[in-house]
Design a protein around this nucleic acid. Structure first.
Lengths: 321, 321
DNA sequence: TCAAAAGTGTTATCCTTACACCCATGT
DNA sequence: ACATGGGTGTAAGGATAACACTTTTGA
């Protein structure tokens, strides 16, 4: 790197003028018995994380090293989420910490028991995000009234209108408008309205009572929200669900997994056609007959589609020429 | 941040054991006279960048500060692209540098002349990416033969097949299969095949000759590829093009801008309908009659849609219930 | 026989794509 | 008149969403 700016650096040699700490932090997801779960350490309130060290070959391998060291759990698919920076007090010095967050998908080892880490349903942290059984009661009964109060607390009519509009968009006024992808927007709105426990620390005047939903250390819940949002978006255009499935599965199991992630129910006949028509899966020839009803064919993911298909992704009216 | 890992940190107090340098780096894009251009410093071979400093309020504001200091050019819309890490020699010490890259959209000030920075057409760096006049000659005449040679140079048949398959997917064998979003995959493929100048530095055995396309400092061209790819994806689902347009414009100007970014032509009548039907623009009542032909209505972007619409984004067969 | 889940058929609707054509201005 | 770009109509085809229905098992 020899960009022009070098000359203006303070203490280019070895001084630690603008040096920062870099942290790696992981949202590791699995779906077990139809519930999406996230890997946590400590009292279920922190995501696995650790400093990026000089002997890590890359950010990805550093992250894998940390997660595997802290949880003995190997990771499969991982993807970078977002990088953010905060000022942090370490000892007496004010120092920068940069956090580079990743999303990881894996299968949960249900046999293991550990005091240092565990799996927790992600809807424990975001109870308003699960719409599989309809709109959760807390949305109309607690969140919306609180958000309305927050909006009315605004300084001027414009601000009031803006706050309430953001709230109605983020949460969807009637059921058809609910957009499951807006996980981060919803969390940030609740944070801004000082309705989540994490907002209290920053000397916020905010409302007295906190809403349901388990808080996390520092801004880990915001990172988790980012990961959930990303995954909900991604399952729609890339076949990442299969990273969470066992080697063979029935179409209903696949559907339940998608529903768990999206937080909403999908239409069974159409879901089957969608999956089969895209050649994402192939039958194994075997069937499974455990959960009452007619035995279901077992399928496996067709690895080859990963190479064959890259994503259509047009939305422009291209002209042929 | 008090994640569990803290205890294992080397020199938690003030030691610089695992401290890193953090660089901010910007891909700043404008579209001028139907050509997409990128802001560069130095001999048109580096992107604006600089260290993230302790007095920057946030990553975004640090980036804005650097770009504005280096180019006197204020930024509009910005979004984070990707973060990557490399080992770098600074003085005698081996040290980490983390680069956090951003995409910025703006309008070019065509009056300014500066010796320290300039705007350059992005197809100078990626001549194979412009398909507005059909497939560029260098694709079939230079790139594909070189890639084929590279594929045939593989150690075993599997590797040969894999390399050639990746090449055909990335570049699209026949015109209909060209996917303009795969900018990064194409660049990385050419890099892996040691066909771009930047690949030579890393002691690569690679081929003797480099292909057309202006190289950049360090990995800046890879970052630019990331930015172009992201922008090409994004214009399809978010109205970001308007960040690049003047206050009022004709629909053909808008179309030319989209075409410049996508590197392909779009179908005029359908493009108009697409734009108008989505209520993205409103007429100003005025017309413009400069470039031969019937005077065109002028439009302006409807700012309100940013709030109203968040993105539909369904692709799952949801069930109503 | 009934409950539960597997699976198939079919239609209405909307969106995308393509083609054909007319309109208004300058030279 | 004609070239150039502006602008509208419309029909074919495919994807999506919704509804109705048959099949195969276990209790």
């Amino acid at each position: 790197m020899d960009h022009q700016a070098k000359g203006t650096r303070k203490g280019t040699g070895g001084g630690k003028g603008n040096d920062v700490k870099a942290d790696l932090i992981a949202v590791v997801v699995a779906v077990t018995k139809g519930e999406p779960r996230v890997l946590t350490i400590g009292q279920a309130s922190a995501l696995p994380s650790g400093p990026f060290e000089l002997d890590h070959r890359s950010l990805q391998s550093g992250l894998r090293a940390w997660v595997e060291r802290q949880t003995s759990h190997p990771l499969g698919y991982i993807e970078q989420l977002y990088t953010f920076a905060d000022r942090d007090r370490i000892g007496d010095e004010l120092q920068r910490v940069i956090s580079i967050s990743y999303l990881g998908l894996t299968r949960e080892d249900q046999t293991e028991r550990s005091p240092t880490h565990g799996w927790h349903g992600w809807y424990d942290y975001f109870p308003w995000e699960d719409h599989r059984s309809g709109i959760p009661a807390i949305v109309p009964e607690i969140l919306m009234p609180q958000l309305q109060a927050w909006a009315e607390d605004a300084d001027d009519p414009d601000m009031h209108h803006d706050r309430w509009q953001r709230a109605t968009i983020a949460f969807g006024l009637d059921e058809r408008d609910w957009n499951e992808e807006l996980v981060l927007q919803r969390y940030e709105l609740l944070h801004e309205a000082a309705l989540v426990a994490e907002a209290k620390h920053s000397g916020n005047t905010g409302s007295a009572l906190s809403i349901p939903g388990r808080p996390m250390t520092a801004d880990h819940r915001r990172i988790l929200a980012t990961g959930i949002g990303r995954l909900r978006t991604k399952i729609k255009y890339r076949p990442v669900v299969f990273e969470l499935m066992p080697a063979t599965f029935t179409l209903l199991q696949l559907q339940r997994t998608v529903e768990a992630l999206a937080g909403r129910l999908v239409h069974k006949p159409n879901f089957r056609r969608l999956v089969e028509q895209q050649d994402l899966v192939e039958g194994t020839g075997e069937t499974m007959s455990d959960t009452g009803g007619r035995p279901a064919k077992l399928f496996r993911f067709r690895q080859t589609v990963l190479a064959e298909r890259t994503v259509a992704g047009t939305k422009l009216p291209l002209s042929r020429a």
